[in-house]
Design a binder for these strands. Sequence first.
DNA 1: ACTTCGTCGACTGCCTACAGCATACAATGA
DNA 2: TCATTGTATGCTGTAGGCAGTCGACGAAGT
Lengths: 249, 249
Amino acid sequence: MQSTELAQGMLERRIDRPVPLRERVYQAMQELIISGELAPGQHLVESELAETLGVSRQPVREALQLLNSDGWVDLRPGYGAFVHAPTPKEVDQLLAVRCVLEGESARLAATLADAEGIAKLRELCDQGEAALAADDVDNMVAANAELHRYVTELSGNEVLLDFVTQVDRRVRWYYTPIARQRGTQSWQEHRKLIDAIENGETEKAAQIMREHTERTRESYLKESGDDPNSEEPKAAPVRTRRRRTAPPA
Amino acid sequence: MQSTELAQGMLERRIDRPVPLRERVYQAMQELIISGELAPGQHLVESELAETLGVSRQPVREALQLLNSDGWVDLRPGYGAFVHAPTPKEVDQLLAVRCVLEGESARLAATLADAEGIAKLRELCDQGEAALAADDVDNMVAANAELHRYVTELSGNEVLLDFVTQVDRRVRWYYTPIARQRGTQSWQEHRKLIDAIENGETEKAAQIMREHTERTRESYLKESGDDPNSEEPKAAPVRTRRRRTAPPA
DNA sequence: ACTTCGTCGACTGCCTACAGCATACAATGA
DNA sequence: TCATTGTATGCTGTAGGCAGTCGACGAAGT
């Protein structure tokens, strides 16, 4: 009967189940970490977080495990959770991995991208350059991130997209100063990349992307002034009195 | 005082805390999935698993979340956990990602590897070829996996190692038939790879590794006979009576 | 003083319990 | 006969609580 099908059609928009608490805790804690309210190395006490966020310990625990698998916190069985303190070395290695992954993204995108995709890439370029001209760093970083993400999406490899996203989450912190430093040149490179993708020049696109991301990496090194081999976390672990401290790694 | 330092030195071996239950549950379930006892698509009921494994639901939940982040099971909030049913497309994409990641591994290894590392690689080759000659597929697969892993370790990039391991876990299933098919040729390629690494020929090593893993990927396609674009899971989801079924994705 | 031992508080890991929703099935009406 | 509504049951999400262990601190012994 058509009424049935119609009804089903109307219900097709998935019913949004209430978001589990663990998801919301995850979001909240991510923001607390980004904002620096939870300092790198700091010991995260489940009961405190639970009280602060107004939930029980269980969703907090589950959120912590999520955060752990995303690299935001380190979990030491029996000792608790600690805000992850990235070392310059780790960031450098992440940027190196990003370089090869996105190189492959560009290569695949060059074989697959259609006119629509190209148009969207160009528009993101416009947005980014407009933000640059307006000295609006936040929007420039956002446009940049979305452009890179979208290239990977155009690669048609969802696993690749997944990995790139993982890397991206863990280095997003460091983009702002880099973006400020790289400025105009970065967007010129984007333009060339898009041209190569449009023309289906796979190797050239891959090459451009690799060099582009490699320069980002160099920018990070210059900007941070850190020894890329340093194993020292940038922020020293916080120790408060009567607080469990991290055991020897 | 030296006695103090001595004592600390002796304690330096980390105290092995009893392995948390969630870890053991994780292991157990991984094996159940690999052995096929838990079929792809099957709904995993927390209380059943808890009873089977003799623990409460909590560690089971935590193990499920671990398995989720490692790609073994899919978690749908409010609906429960389902054994991940990989599609040929997904496996193909994973192998494609592995290809670029390990290519980079080889490149870096060629710049860093020392004599000791090279020797270990050669030994793994010996082991693998011996296993091949003895028609011992399991050991051959193991040697192959360890060789690839060790190349990445030699790259000196721990993040890269982490990512390669992730990919590896998710495709390990499929190695056995491939290894059987590729046989001798695979180990010849390994030898050439090691030579290139030893000689510090970075680009050549990377090239060899990319082609080597690319051939693995092609072998998978041939062996499985599946359309790499198929979105259909290889094993149909199991539905039992009175069982919660997967909601529309 | 310096070390060693014991005590205390704190936190994690795990368990049990309960509320609410989802599904399957039966009953009801057209 | 088919669609719809009601009902029972299973399962997830969350709360709260308890035992074991770790770390800090102080007391006692050397």
